[in-house]
Simulated assay, not measured.
Amino acid sequence: MSARYHLNDLSALLRGKKVAIVGLGGTGSFILDSVARTHLDQIALFDDDKVHLHTIFRWPGFIPGAIGKLKVEALATHYDQWHSGIVPVAERITADNVVSLRDFDFVFVSVDEGPARLLIVDWLSANNIPFVDCGMGLNRSTVGLSGFVRITGTDREAFDNNRGTVRLPVENAKADEYRKQAQIPELNALNANMAVIRFKQHFGLLDRESDATSIIFDTVTFEMDRAREPR
């Protein structure tokens, strides 16, 4: 629909580009929902998990019969109606196969494990492959839920500046704490949209003035905190 708004010159900036989405939970699925509406040549989906009951409450829309199927297969079949070139890869990215990300023009990282995040983002930034790493946390407070939504990227500076901080955590939370970290679709969608905006800024579809390497949105204050200097 780019022609309707006289934006063919901008939307064409994504023609021929290939992106990967690593992790197809709540945030990753909303990323797919957005980038499937672009002129990308290929969208590869990396995840080895199956669809569970809680999964469908985090995904956009509803995919009948998805429970029990591999996430990447269910999503690829559904979004193939929107966009050709969606490639499901039923694999978890590890040190053994991270090299499979080498041919992509951009990678969205939406995993929930700190060591996996460290491995992937370290490798991507060391190999000059632009990325956006996503994250969120939500806890019960005395008056409701409070939390944050975060994106970090897109280069080695972003990795070096934020590694090991709340902006790019590289360790897992304790098991009991992790289970308190609820996910709700509006925050998954916000996380994904922040990541997609940063992705479109990278390729020039959206203007950008901030040089922030990481941005955190606080759900309580409704404010965004931007990181620029090494931490």
Rank of each mutant, 00 (worst) to 15 (best):
N127R: 15
D225Y: 11
S110F: 00
R167H: 15
I56F: 00
S34W: 07
I93K: 03
V109A: 09
L40W: 03
I120R: 02
A189N: 08
R226A: 15
K50W: 00
K17T: 05
H83Y: 03
D103I: 08
A3D: 15
D218T: 12
P130V: 04
N161C: 07
I63A: 03
G137M: 14
F222I: 11
G204L: 05
D48T: 01
R208S: 13
M194F: 09
V107I: 10
M1D: 11
F104G: 01
R226V: 05
R58V: 00
F106A: 08
R167Q: 13
L10A: 11
S11Q: 14
A90W: 00
D103G: 09
D80E: 08
R92L: 13
E171A: 13
N191L: 03
F217E: 05
P60D: 04
G25D: 01
N8E: 15
M1N: 12
N97A: 05
F62W: 04
G135D: 04
Q81D: 08
P185L: 05
I31S: 01
P115M: 12
V107H: 01
V220Q: 13
R179I: 07
A189K: 12
N172P: 10
P130D: 11
T213L: 05
Q181C: 14
L70C: 02
N193M: 13
F57P: 00
K174Q: 07
L187N: 13
M194P: 01
R117C: 11
V51A: 02
A90L: 07
N127D: 04
V111Q: 13
Q42A: 11
D49W: 02
V132M: 12
A158N: 04
A66P: 03
F104S: 02
R156C: 10
V220L: 14
D9G: 08
D133H: 10
I151P: 01
T219I: 15
W59E: 00
A116Y: 00
V170K: 02
G25Y: 00
L7A: 14
V170S: 07
K71V: 05
G16W: 04
V149K: 01
V87N: 04
A189H: 06
G65A: 01
D49G: 02
A116C: 06
G23T: 09
L119I: 08
E186P: 06
K50C: 03
R228D: 01
R179L: 10
N162Y: 03
S210L: 07
V72R: 00
D47E: 06
L32R: 03
D122R: 12
L119A: 06
R15M: 09
G85N: 09
R179Q: 11
R150K: 14
P64D: 07
K69E: 10
V111M: 14
A95S: 14
Q201C: 09
S214L: 09
T38I: 07
L205P: 09
V89A: 00
E73F: 08
D41A: 09
I86E: 11
A76R: 03
L45R: 00
D211G: 06
L10Y: 15
L119H: 05
H202K: 01
I197M: 13
K71I: 06
A189L: 06
P64M: 02
G144M: 11
C134I: 00
R140D: 14
V220C: 08
A74D: 00
S210Q: 08
Q181S: 14
R140K: 15
V170Q: 04
D48G: 02
L187C: 10
I43D: 05
R15A: 13
